[in-house]
């Protein structure tokens, strides 16, 4: 870990200004991902702006019947909130499928959106990695890629977004609210929040330097049956090989997003329109043009089977 300076912010815009004004500065909230990466020098911030004192730890009703979640609401508190459990069960199910109780106690809503990939080559500083060190190449291409992405990748990077919570947020059409260093606020639909790697795999999201997540807003409840089917090699404390977040209506229509497949939660409108035709139709459209490796080609049939499981449960 490289030495760094540290401050605790008391105001969101001031925090944003502070990060924007210092090259190499970063925000820290729960630190469950950032500190691990700092210890092995995958992340080497020169300055940390701790946002934990900001007044962003509440879940409030919005005027149009939705909920506004403060960026510092812990994963545990969010999953346990009665309104979330009742009206947005897919979100609770996705959160409790991730990490461990201890980590969820510490991890924040904003931080969860900013988890970095778990690609093993990203984690090993001896290895080339365009995401960690732009221009060095990608060791994962042609290497061990069982966990990595099958779609939305580029010849620079095939990393997967590892999270669970954002997959549910994608199905719910959540909106990420931010404040910029100049105090301006913006609302980013979750669909646009995470980037595909393209030529800039070092940039995970569309956030600008110093831009701070303040809230995540959920539109009014969708009704329907909520599912989060997470497939992994062990029963707990493991990242998804494939996950399916779905809200299925009584008529068989609904919404579906996939985790573990791409640089971002993967949801394709044209594909989900095919839900009444069954899982195979949905995934054929959703993963059209996928470019899996030999190691991770199984994710495509697995996604179909996981969705089929969800549809069967919805019908049962």
């Amino acid at each position: 870990m490289k030495a760094f300076t540290y401050e605790r912010a008391s105001d969101p815009a001031a925090a944003a200004r502070s990060v924007a004004s210092k090259p190499g500065a970063k925000f820290i909230a729960g630190g469950t991902n950032l500190l691990d990466l700092m210890k092995i020098e995958v992340e080497t911030p020169t300055h940390l702006v701790d946002v934990q004192d900001l007044d962003l730890d509440k879940i409030e009703k919005t005027s149009d019947g939705g909920l506004r979640i403060g960026a510092l609401v812990s994963n545990t508190a969010l999953a346990a909130d009665q309104r979330i459990r009742r009206d947005y069960a897919v979100l609770t199910r996705a959160i409790v499928a991730g990490a461990s109780g201890q980590l969820r106690n510490k991890a924040s809503t904003g931080g969860n959106l900013l988890q970095r990939t778990r690609c093993p080559y990203f984690y090993d500083t001896n290895m080339p990695c365009n995401k960690r060190k732009p221009g060095t190449g990608c060791a994962a291409i042609g290497g061990y890629s069982r966990q990595l992405a099958v779609i939305g990748v580029s010849d620079k990077c095939i990393a997967t977004f590892p999270g669970d919570m954002p997959v549910a947020l994608r199905v719910l059409d959540a909106v990420v609210e931010t404040v910029k260093p100049d105090g301006q606020r913006r609302s980013i639909p979750i669909a646009d929040f995470h980037r595909l790697w393209g030529d800039k795999p070092e940039q995970d999201t569309v956030l600008e330097p110093g831009e701070l997540i303040t809230h995540v807003t959920l539109p009014r409840p969708l009704g329907g049956q909520h599912f989060y089917e997470k497939v992994r090699d062990r029963a707990s404390y493991a990242f998804a090989l494939v996950s399916v977040a779905a809200v299925i209506q009584p008529d068989g229509t609904g919404r579906v997003a996939f985790g573990g497949m791409a640089p971002k939660p993967w949801r394709v409108a044209e594909a989900e329109a095919l839900l009444p035709q069954g899982a195979a139709a949905v995934t054929a459209r959703a993963f059209q043009g996928a470019t899996p490796t030999k190691d991770n080609a199984f994710k495509l049939p697995l996604a179909t089977r996981a969705l089929a499981s969800v549809i069967a449960q919805a019908k049962a």
Partner: peptide, 16 residues
């Protein structure tokens, strides 16, 4: 050996 930590080299947890 690429998966050289306990997040990527999985051993059983209680739930298994």
């Amino acid at each position: 050996f690429v998966n050289h930590d306990l997040a990527s080299y999985e051993v059983p947890v209680h739930a298994d």
